[in-house]
Design a binder for these strands. Structure first.
Length: 892
RNA sequence: GUCCCGUUAGCUCAGCUGGUUAGAGCGCCGUCUUGACAUGGCGGAGGUCGUCCGUUCGAGCCGGACACGGGACACCA
């Protein structure tokens, strides 16, 4: 028998309780069941250094909604969780810790350092997991993975070796983005650009063998001139034609460098002549390659000037050196001018240090061939993007994909499965470009060199880019490279839910790797949700201090409120401007549901479940209406979810429960519960509607729905595994909907009249209704009591013909004329004003309709029902105007 | 520079295939502590749908131009 609910909903009392139970009972766990279809989502693994922020909250709420919905729908639903080792980020955290102890990682040594990171991970690395649980995420924790765990490390090695054997991985000297603070290479997309004020310096490079002829170049980075090996001009630039092939003297260094022609030079920019520094600029590097220039390195890995820069520059920071160079140029009279210049500066996306282009030896993956099938998979609609515009975005990037620099000069990560035979490498003088001699790519460290049998074998020091392991995530987590049953059953996954920021970092690479290694797409749908911004549309960040902490919000409003609010705010991948007050909506809704449930439970004291099915014939119009409405909502929610329109789904349920079930049915039920012969059926309907609605709401608000559901008559152990509501077409009842619409219209009209004339709710009024529609008359007579109660009516008379009282307020809706006698009730002056206003509004309506009806084309070409509707509305408006006019005359 | 997104009520945003007088939440005004809920009920005020042009019988929605705001990518010597 039904139980009580406390008067106030307190999320803290129920959330942890249910989460623990769900987890303990294994409700989150997915098993291979050939009779069921799988539905798989693999979590975008949060960094172990991460703390749950609003972006995570939205991302994981969406995934949880999908998983809970599919689980209830009878799929074998797997949400596979895990964390990412986050190479640079994690190493930074632990290095900071070391620094506090007065150490750096080079002092502790590699093994000890890695050990320390592992200890840190074991201690703090699961914070985010705990936070995901607070959010209600129904992940299968028994399958939780970590990108550095044993299985995944195997997968990484396997992938590397296979790609290497296919010739897709190579080692090369290349100019890459280098972070002088993290001391590692960064891929192109790991560099963030910010607009900053800089200066553009115009420098004279004297022409050799002349007195004072020179060529002027412009640069924002004068310190790099120490490494210049040429000056380049555009071959079609007439100004410089004569100078091509000549030699200039590089100032400060007194080195001779050639003037050469290259198409990349834009004659319109600066002076039209460019200094070329192959070792310190990406574009210059390519020029250097084309023209076989030397590439002296004048800035080292820590962004200090090298010996090659010469004195007095050696050892200076790049910033100091810039000052020095400028000073020296001025002294020598070689600085023509400087001007302010706004340009974008590349910074490390982790630590925001200015990136230094750096010439070094790195490992790369050739991407062109891998990209081809990945492009095809999206073009042929095997993979769908939601919203679809991201498809174009993805394709445009894939078309111009560049090779992927996968080596990182840090310690925390997957060390490359690459070994060098010292002896063989020596023989060739360790030419880095030689990627055959003395290089062994192997799962385990070889005992000896297969060529020379030397035992002097060492492993490459570099580790792989974090995204390399992430790229394998959808299948490595399922056991690959082993041919596991999981892989066969759960792969390809159903949906990937993520943010637009990592489409290239991650989504594209997963598609390529999935197709390469499994020969199948990693997921069918990619849902890209919006980004959470603050009230002013800025990104939330620690430095701005404008972040809203989801855990704080959960603490204050409850998890369900946070989830529900977030979801109702985010429509189809649009960004969300969030403020704390937005969560009140969810909290208020939770409160509403709670009280609705309290009402239902309170009225079940003498409830005996019906042994037979509900009989439709026993329904009164309100019963049939609410049952029908719920079925329609079920259909809408299903459709919305299929289209990834989460806000639409959430708001459908919200509006149904609040504005239909609570506002109308519940109020009507207060009458019906008092009717002896209808009490039982009303109880039954209250129960059923609430129970079914809770199931519909459960994916959005898992905790409160479980708490209430448990107290209602139900089948099964948990709402989590209760069946997802399916539309029962037999219950859809247009006639009942129409009847109820009549009642609602009239009640609303009477309430409007009362409100406008300012009659206190407690004061009962008399109402006369005139109508010619006999069916409507029947409905009103049958539901007389509802009308009286909900509209505050003392006496209600309804007839075909009825005499209109002398002094009355009139409302005309549909086929009804509603009169409210006003004798002794009103201020006549006020009523006059009201009538005038109403008349104006009606006239405006009529003129709009008339314009339309005067148009012959409209009458001919518009669909018949539209014409009918318009004609009807004209008649109604005219009739209304008539009545209003007479009313006004009566008053005067 | 190229591409994408946005511009609808004071604020934040819905509005799916064009069709009666354009909606929600918050805020605001009035009113009500009635046995589910004041985190509430009832009623109300508030909109030339960014601007202009076009297509159409009919445009918030379709096409074009422009303006403003936001983002991505590229270039930035």
């Amino acid at each position: 028998m039904p139980k009580e609910l406390p008067p106030q909903y307190n999320p803290k009392d129920v959330e942890d309780k249910w989460y623990k139970l769900w987890e303990k009972k294994g409700f989150f766990q997915a098993k291979i069941d050939k009779k069921k279809k799988p539905y798989t989502i693999v979590i975008p693994p949060p960094n172990i250094t991460g703390e749950l922020h609003m972006g995570h909250a939205l991302n994981n709420t969406i995934q949880d909604i999908l998983i809970r919905w599919q689980r209830m729908s009878g799929k074998e639903a797997l949400w596979l969780p895990g964390t990412d080792h986050a190479g640079i980020a994690t190493q930074n955290v632990v290095e900071k810790q070391l620094k506090r102890e007065g150490l750096n990682r080079h002092q502790t040594g590699r093994a000890a350092f890695i050990n320390k990171v592992w200890r840190w991970r074991n201690e703090y690395g699961r914070t985010i997991i705990k936070q995901l649980k607070k959010l209600g995420s129904s992940c299968d924790w028994s399958r939780e993975r970590f990108t550095l765990d044993e299985g995944l490390s195997e997968a990484v090695k396997e992938a590397f070796i296979r790609l290497y054997k296919k010739g897709y991985i190579y080692r090369g000297r290349y100019i890459i983005n280098w972070c002088p603070r993290c001391l590692t290479a960064l891929s192109d997309i790991e560099v963030e650009y910010t607009e900053e004020k800089g200066r553009l310096y115009y420098i004279k490079y004297p022409l050799k063998g002349t007195k004072d002829e020179f060529i002027a170049v412009a640069t924002t980075r004068p310190e790099t001139m120490l490494g210049d090996t040429a000056v380049a001009v555009n071959p079609r630039d007439k100004r410089f034609k004569k100078l091509i092939g000549k030699t200039v003297i590089l100032p400060l260094q007194n080195r001779e460098i050639p003037v050469l022609a290259d198409d990349f030079v834009d004659p319109k920019f600066g002076t039209g002549a460019v200094k070329v520094t192959p070792a310190h600029d990406a574009a210059d590097f390519l020029v250097g390659q084309r023209h076989r220039l030397e590439a002296p390195v004048v800035i080292d890995r820590q962004a200090l000037m090298t010996a090659e820069a010469g004195s007095p520059y050696q050892g200076l920071t790049r910033e100091k050196c810039r000052q020095q160079v400028v000073e020296d140029l001025i002294k020598e009279g070689l600085l023509l001018k400087e001007e302010d210049y706004l340009h974008a500066i590349g910074k490390c996306y982790r630590c925001h240090t200015v990136v230094e282009p750096h010439l070094s030896l790195q490992w790369f993956v050739k991407m062109k061939k891998l990209a081809e099938p990945a492009i095809k998979a999206v073009k042929s609609k095997k993979i769908h993007f939601f919203p679809p515009r991201w498809e174009k975005f993805y394709l445009s990037w894939m078309k111009e994909i560049k090779d992927w620099c996968i080596s990182r000069q840090i310690w925390w990560g997957h060390q490359l499965p690459v070994y060098y035979c010292r002896r063989c490498r020596k023989k060739i003088g360790d030419k880095p470009e030689d990627t055959k001699t003395g290089i062994i790519v192997s799962r385990i460290k070889p005992d000896k060199c297969p060529v020379c049998k030397s035992k002097e074998i060492e492993q490459d020091e570099d580790v792989l880019d974090t995204w390399f392991s992430s790229a394998l995530w959808p299948f490595s987590t399922l056991g690959w490279p082993k041919k596991t049953r999981d892989l066969g059953y759960f792969y390809p996954t159903s949906a990937l839910v993520t943010d637009r920021g990592i489409i290239f970092f991650w989504v594209a690479r997963m598609i390529m790797m999935g197709l390469e290694f499994i020969k199948n797409i990693p997921f069918k749908h990619v849902y890209i949700h919006g980004t959470i911004l603050d009230e002013l549309g800025r990104k939330m960040s620690k430095s701005l201090g404008n972040g809203i902490d989801p855990l704080d919000m959960i603490n204050r409003f409850g998890t369900d409120a946070v989830r529900f609010s977030l979801i109702s705010l985010t429509s189809e991948g649009q960004d969300v401007l969030l403020s704390e007050s937005k969560f009140e909506m969810g909290r208020n809704f939770a409160n509403k549901i709670w009280n609705l449930a309290r009402f239902v439970l309170r009225n079940l004291n003498d409830y005996r479940p019906l042994t037979k099915n509900l009989k439709i014939e026993e329904f009164n119009p309100a019963d049939a209406w609410i049952m029908s409405r719920l079925e329609r909502i079920i259909g809408q929610v299903e459709t919305s979810l299929r289209k990834y329109r989460f806000n639409e789904a959430a708001l459908s349920i919200y509006n149904f429960l609040w504005h239909e079930f609570c506002d109308w049915y519940l109020e009507i039920s207060k009458i019906d519960l008092g009717e002896k012969n209808h009490r039982r059926i009303t109880q039954e309907i209250l129960c059923r509607i609430l129970e079914k609605s809770l199931r519909l709401l459960h994916p959005f608000a898992p905790f409160i729905t479980e708490e209430i559901w448990q107290k209602l008559p139900h089948q099964g152990e948990t709402i989590m595994l209760a069946p997802w509501p399916r539309v029962n077409h037999k219950l859809i009842n247009p006639a009942a909907e129409k009847s109820m619409a009549v009642l609602i219209t009239i009640i609303t009209a009477v309430r409007n009249l009362r409100g406008e004339i300012n009659i206190a709710p407690a004061e009962k009024v008399d109402i006369l209704i005139r109508t010619t529609a006999s069916s409507s008359r029947r409905i009103i007579l049958e539901n007389n009591q509802i009308l009286k109660n909900l509209a505050g009516i003392k006496d209600l008379r309804i007839k075909n013909k009825i005499e209109k009282p002398k002094l009355c307020a009139t409302a005309i809706v549909n086929k009804f004329e509603i009169f409210m006698p006003l004798e002794g009730l009103i201020d006549i002056q006020k009523e006059k004003e009201r009538l005038k206003k109403e008349i104006d509004r009606t006239k405006e309506g009529i003129s709009q309709v008339e314009i339309r009806l005067l148009n012959e084309d409209f009458l001919q070409k518009a669909p018949r029902d539209v014409v009918e509707k318009t004609k009807n509305s004209e008649l109604q408006l005219k009739a209304k105007l008539d009545k209003l006019d007479t009313s006004l005359k009566t008053l005067i």
